[in-house]
Each structure stands twice: as structure tokens, then as C-alpha cells.
Design a protein around this nucleic acid. Structure first.
Length: 461
RNA sequence: GUCCCGUUCGUCUAGAGGCCUAGGACACCGGGUUUUCAUCCCGGCAACAGGGGUUCGACUCCCCUACGGGAUGCCA
């Protein structure tokens, strides 16, 4: 059975690169009727935090990428690594080394200066040292030959063993290193396919050597191209929003994030809108692009617009509610809230900005758009006074009636549509952004509309 | 520095030797939807990194250069 895993280290909040890795792991497992597992790689005690672990797990849950088994934590399986290390020692494939960091650093510098690849020189390889307080355990890496593995996105990948040195398995403090843990855990969790970022490509031959020393079966790999920022560099907190939470807080739907991340580095014909189910059906790891891909927020906006539009009204409102709360908008404060939402739901690409757009329909106008005021409100006093007199007569206050009256005003005043409508619109919603004017006024209601136009007139004085 | 991986419109990509006058999408620009924003529709702009091969023929195969990324840790 195919078993994949997502193995984040809890040293930060779940970031979108991680989400993509998890997503591809999840999809691949589901496509093969396999299992998707999560492993928390928290061996870095300095930087690992419980809250990050929670954030990662919650994030996956939210994205619909829940693991098929309870996540395991490396910090709780120390014995596994130690016994694996012992096995390597016993089989003579590892050795203790007491070379000091200072010596190693000097060595590296020299090698680099000489134009060579920095590598441990194997000084202790045949010294047969036994374990002591400041020895590390190293793996005896084969000196010649090559390592081959199959990569689902790159095909066959080959590394020369002479490029690799004897890596450290156990630190001098006795703790296992990342590579050892990783290999041991993949084996113990029954992982068959390792799907991870391209930054791990050159780690792979090292890990294969550990597998071989432990007599473990070979795995299948897929190294994903990295998610890049606008600067074409690996997406980093420094120059872009990286954490999933922030995207969700801006009002992007989880399904939009899935769609966006899946489409980054992969495509299927002309199709652009995908949901998780579509991906499980259509995605092919072999079709994944080899080069890194830039994360384009504009494309995300467009995708989100589509996903939002595909929601039915009830679902849409459920997603919108937390954002309304942030703006202190309560739907119940208006009888016609359903009507308002259904007309405004496509106003902006994110739930957060839609909520902003909704403010004038539920609360007082918070801010007037200065440009709109300058352009349309200044000098509009006579016009607005005229309009108010007409509006006050309207009964019932319906879109049709409003359209008629507005058309009549336009004729009476001999104005073009925007000349009449824009000042009214700005007076009523604070900007030029709103549905057609008759509809806008009907949604806002007679009393409030007239009050706002009066206020706009005062503003004019 | 060394090793590895990569390189098609601004961005995401299609393209597995002739179907390519290089296709789609986002963005952008212009037009339309009885002249607000958004939506929607129509149209436009725009790319095979460069140089050598191989071949009747190369975006597609090979080599070199350039550029970008990754790895070079007792981090993961």
C-alpha cells in the first residue's frame, strides 16, 4: 500500500509551501488508495514550539488534508533512533569520531579555498574509537560507486558517492540528527513514497545510504519544485506573506488555496478551477513542473472570486460571518440582509474586502473616499437638494420606483447618467463602488439614504 | 568555491522532432454589457535565455556559456 507523509518541523506557523507539500502527499496517497501520515519533526528543541505544532495540525485540518492516523512526534521516539544507531555500530557501518568543530571548520575552509567540495576527510574512520563524551557517530559512506533513485518528477537521479562524506548520525550529546530520524521514521511508519521540497534533493543520497546500512527497503521519491516569491527566490517571510493563516484571515477560502497551490507547477489542459476531488482524479505527479514557480496573488484573487461564486448563498454567508464580526456588522440589524448579501457578494475578491464593501449597508459610512468626494460631491449641493425632494415622495421605496424617479430627475436636470448618479452614490455609500444606483438606494432604505444625502450636503458647505 | 537541479509571454503553464504563423489562464491595455465598482462578453499586447552541434527539419535531442535556485551544519 502507498503511504505518504508530511513531515514539518514545528518551528513556525504552517506556510503555504508546506501546505502544497502536504497537499501533493495527500493527493498521491488518495489516488493510490493509500494512507497520508503526518510526522512532527521536533528534534530541534531550541526552535520547536507546541503552538506551531498546533497551528500546523489545525491548518491541515482546515484545508481538508487531515492525516489518516494520529500524527507522530519525533521527540517521543528517541529509542527508535538510538537502537537504529546501535545497529549501524554493530554492523560496522558506523564509527565514532572525536574531531572537534574547530578542526572541521578549518578543514572546510581549506578545501573551499582549494576549489574543492567541503567534506569530512574521514580521519577517524579507521581509528576504532569507542563512544565517549565528545564523540559523534558517523556513517561509513561508500567511497566509490553511485546512488540511484527514481524520482516521480525528475525521473532517474544519480549521485556519485565520492561527492558525499561520512555524515553524522548521533551528535556528541547523544541526540540523533535529522537524517537518521527521517530514515528511521519513514521505515517505521511504513512510508513508501517521499514527497517533499526540492531542497531535499541532495539529502536523498545520504538518506539512502542510511537506509542501506540499516537494511531498509528503497523508497520512491518526488521532489517538488519550490514555491517562489516575486523576486524568484524561495518564498520567505521577509518579502511575502507566507503563512496560511494570513491568507485565510484575508478572506481566501481554503479551497482556493488548494486550487492555487495545486496549479502552481502543474496544469491539466485549459482547466483552472479545481477542488480537492478534482485533483484526486486529475492530478499526475509525473506532470509536475521541474522549475520553481512564483506565487502570484493576483491569480489567487481570481481563483478565490471563482470559488466564492461557486458557493451557494448559505455557504457563502457561513464563510463570511467571521469577517462580518470583525467589522461589527450584524446581519440581523437589517431585515433585507439576505438581499444585500446576494447583491454584494461579488463586489471584491476576498471575504475581508467584501465585508468592507458591506459596511455602508449595515453601519454608518466609516470613511469617504476622498477622490470620489472631490470629483463628485463638491459643488453638487443644488443637485442633491433637488434629488432629495423627489426621493422623499417615493412610495413604495423599491428599485423600480427609484429607477423611474432617477430617470426623471436626469431628464429634468438635463444631465448624463454619471453626472446625476455619481454624486448620489458617493453621498450614500461614500465611494463610487456600489451596484446600480436604484438597487443601492433600495437596499439602504429610504430613511438612511435621505439622511446620508443631507449629510453630504452639509459636508459640502 | 564545489556539487546538484532548473530555464517557453510580466506570472502560472501547453508543447514529448514536422500539427507552432508557439496554444490557454492570470495580470495589463482597449471596447461592449442602455456610459459607477465588480461580474460577464469581445478584442489586443506579450515568450521558446544565448551560442554551437545532430537532423531534410528543433521549443522539443546533445554540448558549452549565461542566469536562477538548492545543497554544501553536531538545522530540519
Amino acid at each position: 500500500m502507498t503511504v505518504t507523509r508530511f513531515a514539518p518541523s514545528p518551528t513556525g506557523n504552517l506556510h503555504i509551501g508546506g501546505v502544497r507539500t502536504a497537499l501533493y502527499n495527500y493527493i498521491y496517497a488518495k489516488q493510490n488508495d493509500g494512507k497520508f501520515l503526518v510526522r512532527i519533526e521536533d528534534t530541534d528543541q531550541e526552535r520547536s514550539r507546541e503552538k506551531f505544532e498546533k497551528n500546523i495540525l489545525d491548518g491541515l485540518q482546515m484545508m481538508g488534508l487531515a492525516p489518516d492516523e494520529d500524527p507522530v512526534k519525533q521527540s517521543q521516539r528517541g529509542h527508535l533512533y538510538l537502537s537504529a544507531a546501535q545497529k549501524i555500530v554493530d554492523s560496522g557501518l558506523g564509527y565514532y569520531c572525536d574531531c572537534q568543530p574547530e578542526r572541521l571548520e578549518k578543514l572546510r575552509n581549506q578545501q573551499q579555498k582549494a576549489g574543492k567540495k567541503p567534506m569530512y576527510d574521514g580521519k577517524c574512520r579507521e581509528r576504532n574509537l569507542s563512544k565517549s563524551e565528545n564523540t559523534v557517530l558517523r556513517l561509513k559512506t561508500p567511497r566509490d560507486g553511485e546512488v540511484k533513485f527514481n524520482d516521480l518528477v525528475r525521473g532517474e537521479v544519480i549521485f556519485d558517492n565520492c561527492e558525499l562524506d561520512d555524515l553524522i548520525l548521533l551528535r556528541s550529546n547523544g541526540n540523533p540528527t535529522y537524517h537518521l530520524c527521517n530514515v528511521v521514521d519513514d521505515a517505521s511508519q511504513g512510508v513508501t513514497t517521499v514527497i517533499r521540497g526540492e531542497d531535499h534533493l541532495s539529502n536523498t543520497p545520504r538518506q539512502i545510504h542510511i537506509q542501506e546500512a540499516l537494511g531498509l527497503p528503497a523508497l520512491e521519491y518526488a521532489h517538488l519544485p519550490l514555491v517562489l516569491g516575486e523576486n524568484k527566490k524561495r518564498l520567505s517571510k521577509r518579502d511575502a506573506v507566507t503563512s496560511l493563516d494570513e491568507y485565510i484571515a484575508s478572506g481566501y477560502l481554503p479551497s482556493s488555496m488548494v486550487n492555487m497551490l495545486a496549479r502552481l507547477g502543474w496544469s491539466k489542459g485549459d482547466k483552472e478551477i479545481f477542488y480537492l476531488d478534482d485533483l484526486i482524479r486529475d492530478f499526475r505527479m509525473q506532470e509536475v513542473q521541474k522549475a520553481g514557480a512564483v506565487f502570484d496573488i493576483k491569480k489567487l484573487d481570481w481563483i478565490n472570486t471563482n470559488h466564492l461564486a461557486n458557493l451557494d448563498l448559505e455557504e457563502f454567508i457561513d464563510h463570511l460571518k467571521p469577517f462580518l464580526k470583525k467589522e461589527s456588522i450584524s446581519l440581523e440589524s437589517k431585515d433585507n440582509w439576505k438581499e444585500i448579501i446576494s447583491h454584494l457578494r461579488t463586489s471584491s475578491p476576498t471575504l475581508a474586502s467584501i465585508s468592507q464593501d458591506l459596511i455602508p449597508y449595515f453601519l454608518d459610512i466609516k470613511t469617504y473616499d476622498q477622490k470620489s468626494v472631490d470629483k463628485f460631491l463638491i459643488g453638487s449641493k443644488p443637485l442633491l437638494e433637488f434629488v432629495i425632494r423627489q426621493l422623499e415622495l417615493i412610495e413604495p421605496w423599491s428599485e423600480d420606483q427609484l429607477d423611474d424617479v432617477l430617470a426623471k430627475c436626469q431628464k429634468d436636470l438635463d444631465l448624463k447618467t454619471p453626472q446625476l448618479n455619481q454624486p448620489i452614490r458617493v453621498a450614500v455609500v461614500g465611494s463610487t463602488k456600489s451596484p446600480s444606483l436604484g438597487l443601492t438606494l433600495s437596499l439602504i432604505g429610504k430613511e438612511v439614504s435621505i439622511a446620508r444625502i443631507k449629510k453630504a450636503i452639509e459636508l459640502n458647505d
